[in-house]
Design a protein around this nucleic acid. Structure first.
Lengths: 208, 208, 208, 208
DNA sequence: GATGAATGAGGGTTCATTCAT
DNA sequence: TATGAATGAACCCTCATTCAT
């Protein structure tokens, strides 16, 4: 291998390990929060030694912030390819479906995020500006829908909260769902059924 | 003071202190989870020394479980005086209103609870049977509403989750609401407005 | 009851409680030593509260010393009524028998004492002078037996150690005896058999 | 140094430190028992910080058990090279001599062991099976000696207890021996004299 | 790049004892 | 006499992090 190929290989290895570490960190932070998570536990989840973990991160808090940044990015990506200008129904059907499937596939992501927000979002805040801009932009579009008579008058920001609340609830409360329905602990939730119920509630709830 | 009066006084003092401790514990557990909470921090919030705290509790975990038990009881009390037999609209208006006001008045309660559920509810589970019975009982009533044509056919358990998701969201995500709306950090949320929006969404969303 | 009768009654009660406390203390000190014993554990064994215990003792160390003093006295009493002047055989038969029976009836006594001696006897030493005088006195008598040809020449102090070693061993090592013999945990040891074996070994071992 | 040499060096250092820790632990456990011993005291005896100690052990109890395991092994080694088939006298002379010399050289070993047995041997028991087998095997040989008329009929297990009692007594009660003989605190005991007296007592005590 | 050693701070909890009534 | 409250010191152990190789 040429010297540059070696270097690329090393970089790839490093990237792979960093990804493993991030996954481990998100799972551990989701379970125990920043304070309650231990770097030992993260190292265990990643299958490496604590010393090695600390060689690759600069600090626990930094890893935490990095993970938050990653989550914010992933959620922004869920918007890609969707077009609010097609009107509320097709957009909401698609978006709610994606959000619920993602929530059920990666529940730790929503859990870590909600944990941070519950705590007052001290470390998330500096990363949150783009989200605010997007939220306020979406509110403009929703106001347009209302003005056009496509949906009834609703608070355009609260509507977005309601969609998030309903879609993320199933990631946060998986065990509650199973428990209340007398399902076994590992039973997968039915994403399609849930998406249908949530979409139905929202679409009818905002009908003019 | 007579001996029995002294004893009653002591008991009252003790009860008061225990209540202070519980409040402090819920706030701290809400912020950092069982693992991340420190008894030192709880003692600080309660305004007593760590040693004194440990004189009044048997262990951190025990205090945590006791707080959960308290929360489950409080939420069950929110049902008192409400009558599902009067039909969906009056019941839901009243229940959603209460729930949201309580969530905004005592956000740490919902936060601690959600934290426990996110973690897999390891310590909540033994206290959860009555909640399951209530949920399944409520599902029967909702099925009755559907059969009577009072609401459209919906999954009767998921409907309950949706109500919880919407009402508790504002307790968990207070800072997000303020941030997205460019409000100052301490601005109180408008419980009436939120209750109206949520109630409107739900009632129209389940209209036959 | 007259005033003095009341006072006597109170004194009797107190004496009884002090005895209960002493028994509890000996058992706990035997099990865990001065350092390892907790006043809580002693109070539990005595069936009283820790506060009450501390009302009746001045300190843990003081209670420990008091218990040692008691033990030294009890062992001195085992000599009462025995007469070394009758010659080695009748005396040793009687003394060894008593010592072994006492050891098996009150093993905690020997255990606490041995624990203190193992530690270097820091607190026993001030109480030990009478024992030394007795030991040296007995050595004189044994030297007389040797001079009279009643037993073979042996070190007169070491002989006493050997007797103590053999008789106390069964108090200290009760569980070992049971374990090595495959006996159940609660099986009582056969004091007569043991006394016979020990007496036989000693008497033949010192025969001229 | 080559990488493997470095590794060997590290391993050697580690082994050496572990040995230092074990010695310190045995001394401290001998003095105060499992409960009464503090890891701080063990660290002090070993000349390291408490944190460093905890880096090398998994827990105080684990260190205790490891020390017990070590002791059981050491005592089993005292048998090596001795042959019971040569008859009682040469074997007992050699074994008693070794045992007493070892007891006087390493009194903490016998003290820690006796402390554990006094307490009921809760942690020793799982390590004790080989000792029981050895004891019962030795009993068979002793029965052979009796059958061959080499010694008088004695209880073959109790005889072993008597040997242990006499040999270990001097380790447990060193201070008592010095005190009763008016020796200074640091005076070494005369192992040869003690071995002679004990051996003489035993051999004559079991003569046919 | 990788790893064993090391550490000061802090974790929850128990301790013997004193105080107040 | 008796008891609940209170406390500062100490308990075992884990923490995130740095050092040395």
């Amino acid at each position: 291998m040429s010297r540059s190929a070696v270097r690329a290989d090393l970089a790839a290895r490093r990237e792979e390990l960093m990804e493993t570490i991030r996954q481990a960190a998100i799972a551990e932070f989701a379970a125990n929060g920043l304070h309650g998570a231990s770097t030992q536990a993260i190292a265990d989840r990643a299958g490496i030694s604590k010393t090695k973990l600390h060689y690759y991160i600069s600090s626990k808090e930094d890893l935490y912030v990095e993970a938050l940044r990653h989550i914010v990015g992933v959620w922004a990506d869920l918007f890609h390819g969707l077009d609010m200008s097609e009107g509320p129904e097709p957009f909401l059907r698609a978006y709610i479906g994606r959000k619920i499937r993602h929530a059920l596939d990666h529940p730790e992501v929503a859990r870590m995020f909600t944990g941070e927000v519950m705590r007052g979002a001290p470390l998330l805040r500096p990363l949150w500006d783009a989200s605010r801009a997007a939220t306020q932009g979406a509110a403009r579009v929703i106001e347009g829908w209302i003005a056009a008579g496509l949906i009834r008058p609703v608070d355009p920001v609260l509507l977005q909260f309601h969609i998030w609340a309903l879609t993320q609830h199933y990631a946060l409360h998986q065990v509650e769902v199973r428990f209340m329905l007398d399902w076994p602990d590992a039973a997968p939730l039915d994403a399609e059924h849930i998406a249908d119920e949530v979409t139905g509630l929202i679409l009818r709830g905002i009908r003019p």
